[in-house]
Simulated assay, not measured.
Amino acid sequence: MPEILTASRSHDVALQGAVLLYGQGPGQFSYGTAHRIEPDASGRPALGAGVPLNRAALIHAVREVAAHALPKGEFLTPNVLSISANAVTWWCAAARRRVFFKCKELGERNAIVSHPALVFQASQSGFSVFALQDEERPVPNSALFEPPYFNTWDHGKICIGSAHVPKQIDVASIGGWEEGFFNSAFTHPNHGTRRVEYERGVFAFWKDMLDGQFPDFPKQVLVPMKLKLADLIAGKLEK
């Protein structure tokens, strides 16, 4: 059975307070109150009594939020392709990795098979994966291909389902995102664009892969997306 990855909770945050702003019209703020969040009788968070928000308290709150919102300096490992305030993009070299399947067409099976080079992106809008034809570190002009995997939508979107992935989007969490993908069971091919160009279809392709018919990943089955790595980094794949 696939290993379950549990995300670190060291950076979790909880609702601690609220600021209410008052004014004579939309976008006009002339008075504010600060409120603590307190549990109600059922244990749910509720707005506590407010106190006037003075200038010093407002400046302190804004500085605290701004300090934690700024991107932190991180060591960029060679697999990192791009990092922004909203996303981290990286690549995995072609390699042999174990895959897990759990569906009526293939049964419950797992095997170590060859994978193409891959590009991953974890962003505020979701988790995505793309295949590459070349095995060298990709460049902005590198062509992206459909991921040849179950549990993916069009434009590389991964259906996370019950997979355990990190809550953080940063370089330090890349390993956790990869484990969440590779250690999850593939259950079904999602609707949309075909994932592989294979005469007998995607189920037959993965059956042959699991049976060891391809010692190396057959790159001829990859479906081109007519998009480049630069498009992904620039956010042009967002829907």
Rank of each mutant, 00 (worst) to 15 (best):
E105Q: 12
R195E: 01
V119D: 11
R200T: 06
V165R: 06
L118N: 04
G23D: 06
P52I: 03
S114P: 09
L20R: 14
L53G: 05
E179D: 13
T193Y: 11
P224V: 04
N86C: 03
I37R: 14
A66V: 00
N79L: 04
A111W: 02
G212Y: 14
R194T: 07
S8T: 02
P166W: 02
W177C: 08
Y149Q: 00
V139H: 13
R44L: 15
M225A: 03
L15Y: 06
Q133M: 11
A61R: 08
Y198M: 11
A93T: 14
L15A: 05
S84C: 09
R195K: 15
A93L: 03
R44P: 05
P138Y: 00
T6W: 10
A131I: 03
Q16T: 12
S123A: 14
G201R: 11
I112Q: 13
F205S: 10
T77A: 03
E197N: 11
L53V: 02
A185Y: 04
L106V: 01
E199W: 04
P2Q: 07
K102D: 15
V119F: 15
A34T: 10
R195G: 01
R137Y: 08
H60K: 06
R109T: 06
Q28L: 10
A204P: 07
H11T: 04
E135M: 10
Q220W: 01
I4V: 02
T33Q: 15
F205Q: 11
E3P: 05
D170L: 13
S162W: 04
R194W: 02
T6L: 10
G23N: 03
V62T: 14
D154T: 05
Q168N: 12
V202R: 09
L15P: 00
A93P: 03
R96W: 00
V119C: 12
G50Y: 14
S114A: 15
G235H: 05
P45T: 13
A111Y: 06
S128F: 14
V202G: 01
H60P: 09
L232M: 07
I112H: 02
A163L: 03
R97H: 13
L232I: 01
F145K: 08
G175Y: 05
F101R: 04
K102E: 12
V19G: 09
S123M: 02
P52S: 07
R194L: 06
F150I: 03
W90S: 02
S42D: 14
S84V: 01
H115C: 11
E178M: 12
N190A: 07
C92I: 08
G107R: 09
G176V: 05
C103S: 14
D231Y: 02
G48Y: 12
A94K: 04
T77L: 10
H11A: 13
A67F: 09
A117N: 07
C103I: 00
V80I: 15
